[in-house]
Design a protein around this nucleic acid. Sequence first.
DNA 1: CGGACAAGCTGA
DNA 2: CAGCTTGTCCGG
Length: 582
Amino acid sequence: MIVRVLPEGTIDKEFDYAVPDGWEDRVRVGTMVRVALHGRRVGAWVTAVDVDPRPDIELRPLAKITGWGPPEDLVELARWAAWRWAGRPAAFLRTASPPGAVRALPERPCPAEASPPVGDPLVADALSRPRAVLRLPPGADRYPLVLAAATAPDGDALILCPSVVEAQRLAGRLARAGQPVACVAHDKPGVAAAGEWARAAAGGVTVIGARAGAWAPLPDLGRVVVLDEHDERYQAEQAPTWHARDVACERAGRAGRPCLLVSPCPTLEALEWGELVQPSRGEERRGWPPLEVVDRRHDDPTKGGLFSERLVDLVRGPGRVVCVVNRIGRARLLACATCGAIGRCEVCGASVEQLEIGVLRCRRCGTERPVVCSVCGSTRFRNLRIGVTRAREELEALVGEPVGEVTGTSDAGDPGTRVVVGTEAVLHRVASADAVAFLDIDQELTAARYRAPEQALALLALGARVVRGREEHGRLMVQTRQPDNVVIEAALHADPGRVAAVEAPLREALGLPPYQALALVSGPAAPELIERLGSPLGLRVDGPADGVWRLVAPSHQHLCDALAAVERPAGRLRIELDPLSV
DNA sequence: CGGACAAGCTGA
DNA sequence: CAGCTTGTCCGG
């Protein structure tokens, strides 16, 4: 027998090898092997079996069978993803492969007993549709939905969560309920990750995972559920910038299986893809906490800083309070206290920030200088935009007790303080609180990213989840100079559809995703790629701006076909499909 | 990817 | 022209 293999790494070419006698039944599409290539041994995936021999080449034998690899449907899916995100199939096959060698699959567990009927009619409705988007408010418990999906007949469910921690928590809960479950995650600490992959590959288990879980092996895929589909952690930040939600949807579609996207604030991408299933107004309102909007339009921006009177009352007051400022450091924008000039870099003119005491640092070029006004020489500055570090200091002074600080880079140790301030990361770390306050939500509302309104609503929904729904008496507070902003109104009325209703026509008019396909091309080899690309029909090439070209096309079909048609030039190249900001 | 080999550059 | 770097090609 002759097989075709694709080597690991960046060799984007397939090679044929002979299968030694007696190995035939251990080799199938997806099997991981080692082969001699150009005097070296490299790992590879079998991509085709029973290949016709070529008379011109003397074939070498496979050197070794490493073990089980992605099943055939995922090898096909990897080819699709390579097209869809302009990457190499090997990158996706790596994600779809076990984190260590899998020699044998474990026994398939005995099937669990017959599934109980789904109690919640909303969940039953959502699970009964082939492509549904379920808008579930932040306070709603998703476990009944997960259990219903896990116990549904017709195959094993695949359930995705935005983070490995959430996936593990959910898998643990299902396992304790007696459900056979495998938690597939590549960066899962400690536990035998290859073992979990093997249990998934054996079948008969519900598979739960984070982003890479979209590539978990399931021999008998039933339904696919993506929880918090709006979460940006589903998208890989390195190229290829694939999105686990989109992979999951494509995978379910290819297998002819139902797929359900769940979110308190579904993205426009999700709404374009499937039918929206929403709770009654009353049910959705119960799932959002009341929102206290502190209108700061008439507050003097130079007085009180980030802390309005109502906010001071909140933090002084009983219960656990989480404050969110999505900025690290001490000061991200400063003005001279004497002459009022904005602190600027003397080299490039960009605004300077103060991350630590005594040093001003340029946000663009990184030049540092002492805290002296370059216009009038004064050494006193006003902090126009304070960050988490400074906010913590000021909060401590206000409440007269220690205040915790949590940012994405701070160590995981929980600050056991009553009041905690942090960036968005604090909402992922703190399990529950009596109140969540967004000190400067305007920063999110006015951010120069086209998804800013969706992201701001997602942030509010995350805060809402930490304090739970209306019946839990949690409090959600925002301080804003834009109390009429549709994002604030959506959270206030527990009606996320308001944001979509405003954003959809706007994005359509501006030619932004999901109504047009976008890609950014950068890196030393980018000019060569742009040159080779030419100007195919339907593709617009803008730029370069700061060395980045922007490709726009009416659909992914147009854009990805155009990219697939050109040969990738040598050298470093980053092709970012569906960028989160442009 | 990484080894092989060719082409280009340098210094005596 | 040896000795070195840089670039391109190719593998089964």
